[in-house]
Design a protein around this nucleic acid. Structure first.
Lengths: 347, 347
DNA sequence: TTGTAGGCGTTATCAT
DNA sequence: ATGATAACGCCTACAA
């Protein structure tokens, strides 16, 4: 019964005016007689008319769509990390409120024929008004080509720069410092570090924060107490296991992500240690998991939704041609739960 | 330096042939001289040409885009539930492999002017080739209008029906039975149930499964041992607290979601009970969290990525005009971890 | 094998 | 206040 799709042409025919008038009436132009507009609007409603985004984008050169690239590193299927999900929620909400829908680019098969990772091409293809990038490698040649273009871009936790490009991130350095300071304040002196990939903004900055924290507490930076991970559980487990097997094991571990902290927790249990009695652990992120662990994970909370919101906002500003900051840095909060306590006596 | 955007027209001009020829050459038509095609293709590459999706969609009437609606219930911001994220990963991968990108519709501000929840309108607007629906209410009038249209739809855990519509879900009934059976096998006789919303497919079916499991084990269905939740943590906590305050509290609780199980776990701790010694708990979903709890949560694993994959596949079949099953039901697996054990002696 | 031309649904610029 | 008409970028008969 419902006709398959009402076009503006039909609306024009049915209401006895020209296509141009219908367009103006519907788009709120002032130079159309009230009665005429009234009639047209009503008809449009009756017929459940919706303008075609494609047609409009074609002539307007704006799609009202924001592209999202979400790469989370080798071996970790896209979208898999909970952190990104929460950020996505923020992006989604804010962009949505601004009238933009999200186009989630799959990093797999191009399908339509562009090369494997041609960010720019894909953006151009869909004519997105702007792009949010998460987890991508900012050294990637393809990424540079995108940011070098005139398409507004905003990175989340990735240090992008370019013509119309900026990024948002948490205050990772402060977070790292805070983590160590908290432990030091409890009396820990052998604090080990499991940091993230150093070719990553978050990985690098948190590591820097850890070091500064150590410095500030007057603690030495011992190489054997510093291990690298990849933000995911297994790497944290491996690193912690190695740490705990040391002749002089740490009494506390700071990890650059909650997931790695979870791995460390397991390593501790396997080593027969009780947290926080024998070992303290601090994570980073405050993913949902953290609050529900037993004991709850002490961690540095990032405002994940806030990051998404900020990203979307910055992007929308750029899209609108409004000045936007090149970098937005959100504060992090120390959330003390159950995995931290003073070290065992005699250490 | 890089010209702002190459169009097919420019390609034609530069290669000295007509627009039509360029189009055919690029789209792999056979009736174009090899050398000509060669020349055009090379030029296109050099200039980094990308066809405009809008223009193509306009003439082709196919967008190669799949719409995704993700509503997760009142008070729970979109996208918030981990279950949906994982499903989304599956959809994303599979659709991507098939050459479709995902358009994530924000359920907030329409922005462009369609009403608050006009699914159909928004789909038409963007000309999506198909739609995946998660967490929507299948009684919703707007949903019905969408599924009644000729746009292919697939629901995930929502019982949709319509012209070109189907849905995928887990074998929730079997899962519910399994949960109870596992507990009964361990000797539990007072098994309480925290079920999800009964206006929800998963909520209803799991409840049914629980009942059948009780039946099969020869256990009575005691009203005071059955509570409703909304799949999220807090509701599970409330329900469990009430359950444990009963004069004759259960020795085991089956929850219709892991999140509710987590809430139940907290309630148990608060009641001074030790899991699984004093109380056994079984969840449903096997979200990432489950494996990392202490003790690990016994639960029914849904193949979340598989659901997404199946949804995308069914959708793509429908889009291609190929026959697709109206309902796909994936098996669930009991994953026994640490929250279940025989009941305390003397119960 | 290739060119021509019509049309997809809108917006936008002119006239009128 | 409204009506033509030209784009927008591409695909696809139909002609040549």
């Amino acid at each position: 019964m419902s006709s398959e799709r009402t076009t503006i042409r039909e609306l024009a025919r049915l209401s006895g005016v020209s296509i141009g008038t219908v367009s103006r009436a519907l788009n709120g132009y002032t130079d159309v007689r009230p009665e005429t507009r009234e009639r047209i609007v009503r008809l449009a409603e009756e017929l459940d008319y919706t303008p075609s985004a494609s047609a409009r984008a074609l002539v307007t050169q704006r799609s009202h769509v924001v592209g999202v690239f979400l790469d989370t590193g080798e071996g970790h299927p896209d979208l898999q990390h909970p952190f990104f999900h929460e950020v996505l929620v923020g992006v989604q909400e804010t962009a949505g409120a601004g009238g933009f829908d999200l186009l989630l680019f799959s990093s797999e098969q191009p399908g339509n024929g562009y090369g494997r990772h041609s960010y720019l091409k894909r953006c151009r293809h869909h004519n997105v008004d702007g792009v949010v990038l998460m987890g991508v490698d900012h050294h990637d040649e393809e990424v540079r080509r995108l940011t070098a273009s005139s398409i507004p871009c905003v990175g989340v936790d990735v240090e992008l720069e370019g013509r119309e490009t900026g990024y948002v991130t948490s205050d990772n350095v402060a977070g790292g410092e805070l983590a160590v300071a908290h432990l030091a304040a409890q009396g820990h002196r052998r604090i080990a570090v499991i940091h993230g990939p150093v070719d990553t903004l978050a990985g690098l900055e948190r590591l820097r924060g850890f070091r500064q924290g150590l410095d500030a507490a007057g603690l030495a930076y011992r190489d054997e107490h510093v291990r690298a991970g990849d933000f995911y559980v297994e790497s944290g487990h491996r690193a912690a296991a190695a740490l705990l097997a040391l002749p002089e094991p740490p009494t506390a571990i700071v990890a650059a992500s909650d997931l790695m902290a979870v791995g460390a927790l397991r390593a501790a249990t396997e080593a027969g240690l009780v947290v926080p009695r024998d070992l303290s652990v601090v994570g980073f992120d405050d993913i949902m998991l953290a609050a529900h662990l037993q004991p709850g994970l002490t961690t540095l909370r990032q405002d994940k939704v806030g990051l998404g919101t900020a990203a979307a906002q910055a992007l929308m500003h750029r899209v609108a041609g409004v000045e936007a900051p090149d970098v937005v840095k959100l504060p992090v909060d120390l959330v003390v739960r159950g995995t931290t306590a003073p070290p065992p006596a005699g250490t």
